[in-house]
Design a binder for these strands. Structure first.
Lengths: 225, 225
DNA sequence: TGGTTATTTTGAACAGGTTCAAAATTTCCC
DNA sequence: GGGAAATTTTGAACCTGTTCAAAATAACCA
């Protein structure tokens, strides 16, 4: 049966990924070798490459799995909080808490700044993951009544995603105890962000609005979803 | 004589770097192998590693050399322009023009986002290069009369440097013809930046100022040079 | 069931960055 | 000048990510 086969194949894939995460946790991403991962999973090196395109792809698979696992917690945040502030705080807290045990693993993904690289957060290959992520920000913005210029509004989810990516980047490399510096950065930037959104409604900001909308259009392309 | 020795050693180093740049230009950074670079310079692989810590370090050496070469052009910009706008435009244009022939080589440096990595733009190891770079922005800000809150002022050079880094990052991966998208981004963000600086002087912005200054302090540390 | 095809698994081979002990050369000092 | 010490140069060896042709296994169908 094709069903069973897929399932067994899936199991093997799972087994390799689990072994990889274990090895990553033990020696860190760099120090972990594909040979060790393979033998930890009881398979040959080639098998790991049959299921994953590269070593980095293992880190990406971890991210993808994490995204699925966080789904319910994120839904809960959106269901139980109303203001944008609460929602953003909630969403980002969920992510930090979920990734905390493997925080440094994310550094492997931060390495790919080139949007041409399949594992870059900006690549076409990661578009599905990215869009799923952005969708949460879309929902976070949706029914929170924001008085934001309409021209900027459609870009807000993507901007917030970008903001989150920046925070995560800072967090990944934050050596302070309990990553308190990131917490500090988060508190302060969020408060500025919300204040700016409030100020953006003032007529004085009109010239700024126009320019920002123009900029966003040329960076992100069409405003439509 | 110690002088001669240093000089000859320096020459060899130069010869390897030149060969490396040639090979990088021919096949790109990734495709260039250390063996090819070594043989192109008429030395053994080990020699390259005697002068440079890694392959990436060759790209960094290129950046460092470029920084020195751009010095006079940057000084000229500062000497012949008065407004912050003209100066920023000038400084960044000089850089783009200088790096244009080797634009993609900079991608090798963009790869190191981890501040722990010696070649990261944020690492202690690159502090000298970074500070030299920031100094130009300090000079650019210096005698252009800006009405900016005093609490933010000391961070401005570092912020402008960060802004420049972002632009260069965008430029390195910009596939549009003649990198026109970057030009567009530059024009629009600069106009927004200058408008924001003008708006920042308004008393209405006082609460924002305080928060921004607080944020900058916690990210950059002490305001003093 | 038995043969054929598709999927999965293997591990040796490859390529390239990096190391290092030894050799070659230069410097330094008596 | 000559011998010790420092510097420079060498290239084979190492390690690791990755590939790939062949082997093993599973799925499918007559």
């Amino acid at each position: 049966m094709s069903q069973r086969t897929t399932s067994k194949s899936e199991q093997t894939r799972e087994r390799i990924l689990t072994a990889a995460l274990k090895v990553f946790c033990e020696h860190g991403f760099e120090a972990a070798s594909m040979r060790e991962i393979a033998s930890a999973s009881g398979m040959a090196v080639g098998a790991a490459y049959y299921y994953f395109d590269s070593k980095d792809a293992l880190a990406m698979a971890f991210y993808q799995k994490a995204q699925e696992e966080m789904g319910p917690a994120l839904d809960l945040v959106l269901a139980t909080s109303g203001t944008l502030e609460q929602r953003l705080k909630g969403i980002i807290r969920v992510k930090f808490e979920h990734f905390a045990p493997n925080r440094t693993l994310l550094a492997a993904l931060s390495a790919h700044s080139d949007p041409h690289h399949p594992l870059s957060p900006f690549s076409p290959e990661t578009a599905v993951i990215r869009d799923r992520d952005i969708a949460y920000f879309t929902r976070a913005v949706a029914d929170s009544q924001l008085r934001l210029p309409g021209s900027i509004h459609p870009y807000l989810p993507r901007l917030l995603w970008l903001y989150q990516m920046g925070l995560i980047w800072f967090w990944v490399f934050d050596d302070s105890l309990g990553q308190e510096r990131t917490q500090n950065l988060f508190d302060k930037t969020l408060s500025i962000l919300l204040l700016m959104i409030r100020l953006a409604a003032l007529p004085l900001m009109r010239p700024l609005d126009r320019r920002v909308a123009d900029l966003l259009h040329s960076v992100f392309g069409e405003p439509g979803r």
